[in-house]
Amino acid sequence: MSSRDVIFSRIRTALADVPNLEPEQDIPLNWEYGKPLPLPDVLETFVQNCLDYKAEVERVPAAKVPEAITKMLKEHKVRTMVVPAGIDDGWRKAAEKGGVKLIDDDPPKTHQELNEIDAVMTASRVGIADTGTIVLDHVADQGRRALSLVPDLHLCVIRADQVVSDVPEAVQRLKPSVQAGQPLTWISGPSATSDIELSRVEGVHGPRNLLIILAE
């Protein structure tokens, strides 16, 4: 008997007392999926919770996004930045205006090369107000996962209509991406650890700087 068969047979023996019902009938669930959280101001909560996690946030009208990009990159003295293939052309120009040398991931950069680049700029898929989270689904305007991981600064632009109140709404919005086979990365603030005396320290292996531009 294969190990698979052994395990399945152990499980069936162990569950001899369980009635032969559909799981949903056997254990019904009193739960409404995808319910929004009533918040007085979703966008303001998003900004506050991102700030609480030590991300830097700029809330600007959509037309002013390029301006904000130039300003933030200048402030952080970014010299080189990798950009995914599908990034907005106006954002590219704004970065270059800030004196940043843009590097395309084509052909794909090696890990070592990525490690020597200062920053990365991406769009995003969903923002979650209640938890201060942005979620990437790594399509063309966000690029492969390594891009938003290895460089030490991540500049992420999110549109106001992408921000939802809470996790359940976000899960519903992310479902099509997962069904299309896209990986997801949920990001809440810069990399952090609480491993030494349970006191939170920002900045371990992921980007130590997370800059978010919220475009209204």
């Binding site: 794909p108 979650i128 492969r144 390594a146 990986p183 809440s188």
Partner: peptide
């Protein structure tokens, strides 16, 4: 960790060409 959300969560569904 008593946080509203942990800093990073990763999800993957099989392999993705050119990614990971």
């Amino acid at each position: 960790t008593a946080e509203r959300m942990n800093p990073y969560t990763s999800m993957w569904t099989g392999t993705t060409d050119g990614d990971g």
